[in-house]
């Protein structure tokens, strides 16, 4: 057991990001139950709370037993402070600024309609009237809107406040945890370099705002979208865990993406990235030694 936990090597970033993924997983379970059994939002909320509490409790216990205690080398105190300052400014911006219109975004309409109709996909969120034609299954099984509706129901927050001003804060936080872990892979225990990396990421977020598919736009204008959670948390998380060969976390990311973004039969960008790393690692482990041997033989002859 100790060996297993040591192998898990869980840090605080893991606790947060995997916790978010588990919340999405619980939402998917509650969403599917609500969809097929015709449950009300109140019933779905209770179901979500039960599943989420069980999953999060199990994960928290696992983290507490197997948490990593080692820390990196010390660095100049100004670097973490600058980083924290930048994140704080971004969070204030996200909380206070008015939402810009993202093309094709129907999240707020959908969440409000779920609450109004007290059920999932009962009426068309775009018009408020009954659907004329059935909606696509690919879209129907996505659970993010249900999660937001459940959170609105549980907290009593208005959908606009929760979706536009609260969720992006958690997503941004998750994103920085993912980049913090990535910095650990890139710069090992050199805290100075790690915080410089994070400061630059925080600066870049402001400058990559030119199109809806750029990370800056996803972070600062549309943090509540499935594609934003994928781009800001799941993809960096998949990359860092694939590089560290923690495949179970990569699989979690692939599953989470299937719950929040439309994919090709559950296979999305996270799967593609994981596959890419696997192929590269296989090439490096199997093909490179063969190539080197052949080159040596040629040189010898």
């Amino acid at each position: 057991m100790q060996q297993f936990l040591k192998k898990l090597d869980i840090g605080f970033a893991d606790l947060y990001v995997v916790g978010l993924i588990l919340c999405v997983g619980a939402a998917e379970a509650a969403h599917l139950a609500g969809l097929f059994l015709g449950l009300s939002i109140g019933q779905i909320s209770i179901l979500w709370v039960w599943v989420a509490v069980v999953l999060l409790l199990a994960w928290a216990i696992l983290w507490f037993i197997g948490r990593r205690r080692k820390e990196g080398t010390s660095c100049h105190k100004a670097l973490p402070l600058v980083f924290m300052g930048l994140v704080l400014i971004q969070m204030i911006y996200l909380f206070c600024m008015q939402q810009v219109v993202t093309p094709g975004d129907i999240t707020l309409e959908t969440v409000s309609t779920f609450l109004q109709a007290d059920g999932i996909h009962k009426v068309n969120p775009l018009t408020g009237s009954a659907y004329v034609n059935p909606i696509s299954t690919k879209y129907k099984i996505l659970s993010l809107n249900t999660l937001y509706a459940v959170l609105c129901k549980l907290t009593g927050l208005a959908p606009e406040v929760l979706v536009y001003h609260m969720i992006p804060l958690f997503v941004l936080g998750g994103s920085y945890f993912a980049y913090y872990k990535l910095s650990g892979v890139l710069f090992k225990e050199h805290l100075g370099k790690r915080y410089t990396f994070l400061i630059l990421v925080a600066l870049l977020v402001w400058f990559m705002d030119g199109a809806v598919y750029l990370d800056g736009y996803l972070a600062m204008q549309a943090g509540y979208l499935g594609t934003s959670i994928r781009g800001l948390i799941l993809l960096p998380w998949t990359l860092v865990n694939a590089l560290e060969k923690k495949w179970w976390q990569c699989v979690l990311c692939v599953l989470a993406e299937a719950c929040i973004c439309q994919t090709l039969f559950g296979l999305g960008q996270c799967f593609l990235l994981m596959l890419l790393v696997v192929i590269l690692q296989l090439c490096e482990a199997k093909l490179l030694p063969i190539c080197r041997k052949m080159t040596r033989k040629e040189v010898m002859s």
């Binding site: 879209y139 410089t196 630059l200 598919y213 593609l272």
Partner: peptide, 24 residues
């Protein structure tokens, strides 16, 4: 999936991470 903008295929490339790495 066709529902997403074509530019999202670039999500596979960790541009922000590389730019920050270059800065470091």
């Amino acid at each position: 999936p066709a529902v997403y903008e074509q530019g999202f295929v670039w999500a596979l490339v960790p541009v922000m991470s590389v730019a920050a790495y270059a800065g470091v």
